[in-house]
Computed example of a mutant assay.
Amino acid sequence: MSVIIRESGLYTSIQDLGRQKYQHIGIVKNGSIDQFNHRLANMLVGNNEDEALIEMTFKLPAIQFTEPTLIAFTGANFPAYKDNEKITPYKIHLMNKGEVLSFGEAAKGTRAYLAIAGGIVAEEWLGSKSTSIRLQMGGHNGRILQVGDEIEMCRNYTSLQKKLFENLEETKTADWGVDQYTLALNYFTDIFHVVSGEGMTHFNEAEIKHLENQVYKVTNRFNRTGLTLEGKSVINRKIVDQPFLSVKKGTVLLNQENQPVVMLNDHQSLSSYPQIGTIASYHIDKLAQKKHNSKMIFKKLTIQEAELNLKKHAQFIKQIKTGIKYKLNEELNK
């Protein structure tokens, strides 16, 4: 049995955590842009964190279920409906046969993640089910999902998932979930920490301070490759003899107009554009939730400062995951 795409949304695709070992030969990682919310959605329904799911962007799809299954959706706070009943993100829901999951518009944020208990069937390429739109590989026929597409469910349920089916037979929704307010404090701030990289040597202290004093806005040129920003030019000169440097998710480049461009998952491997640095790893996932006209403010940090913040962020994530595991264990023992 399957789930059926009744409305495709703007950019709906199958993603896991991406291809990990091929960027050195020019094959981009792909995978979910917001990997933290990817992991949370899978954890809630008892899947492995790296299980493939459905990434939904800006205008979300309508999806019909052809048999009962467990779902969880995370990410931007899109209003969600099971048929005509409003339901809540960051919780486990039991979808019955024939029911349709649909979404309204989110006031903040851009992407949401739908995990289905047991996982979904998708084409695997180079060890990943992630969709590579550019190469038309992986996921569902190597493309974004369209109206009428049917995605098979694996249905390889664990004992925990079988117990969740039983526990939610009457209530349809778990009485617990992840606190959205706590996540919002982490996700919807506009400040992004930038760690110095090899390319930072091209910029003097006055230029870096100028960058930190600006407020940039996301233009309508944003996709899975990157975010192009607009505001005052970072520098008023042209950097010559810039060597090709490696690029990764979070790398901040300057385009020909000296405006910042922040790389996302489907980035190129090398670039000769000047590089300001790289977004600190603990701020990477919130890049996924930036939309047209949203603000970004850069703050330069040393590697040592970023490492201290990373430890705090890791503890924050650990607490959330520990809470989910504790509640799932309670469900298993009911």
Rank of each mutant, 00 (worst) to 15 (best):
S2H: 05
I4H: 01
R6F: 01
I14K: 10
K21L: 03
Q23H: 15
I27H: 06
V28A: 08
I33K: 05
I33M: 14
H38K: 00
R39Y: 08
N42F: 07
G46W: 01
N48T: 02
E51F: 08
T57G: 00
I63E: 04
T66M: 14
E67P: 00
P68H: 09
I71S: 03
I71W: 06
A76H: 06
P79S: 01
N84C: 05
N84H: 12
I87W: 15
L94Q: 12
L94T: 13
N96R: 12
N96F: 04
E99R: 02
E99W: 00
L101T: 08
L101D: 11
L101P: 06
F103A: 04
F103T: 05
E105G: 04
A107G: 01
G109C: 03
T110K: 08
A115C: 03
I116H: 07
A117H: 03
V121S: 03
G127F: 06
S128A: 07
K129L: 02
N141M: 14
R143F: 04
L145M: 08
Q146L: 12
G148M: 11
G148L: 11
G148N: 13
E152K: 10
C154Q: 10
C154W: 02
R155G: 00
R155S: 11
K162Q: 09
L164M: 15
F165R: 08
F165T: 14
E170A: 05
Y181W: 09
A184Q: 11
F188H: 14
F188Q: 02
F188C: 01
T189E: 13
T189W: 08
S196N: 07
S196C: 07
G197C: 05
E198D: 13
M200I: 13
T201E: 14
I208T: 13
I208C: 11
K209H: 03
E212K: 10
E212Q: 14
Q214C: 10
Y216M: 07
Y216K: 10
N220D: 14
F222G: 02
T225D: 04
L227K: 06
G231A: 00
K232L: 09
R237P: 10
V240Y: 14
P243T: 03
L245N: 06
K248T: 15
G250R: 15
V252P: 02
N255M: 08
D266P: 14
L270C: 01
S272V: 01
Y273E: 05
P274S: 03
P274I: 05
I276A: 09
A280D: 11
H283V: 12
D285N: 13
D285Q: 03
A288I: 04
A288N: 02
I297L: 10
I297W: 10
Q304K: 13
Q304C: 00
E305C: 00
E307Q: 12
E307Y: 14
K311G: 00
H313Y: 13
F316R: 03
K318Y: 15
K321W: 04
K321L: 05
T322Y: 14
Y326I: 04
E330V: 09
E330Y: 02
E331C: 11
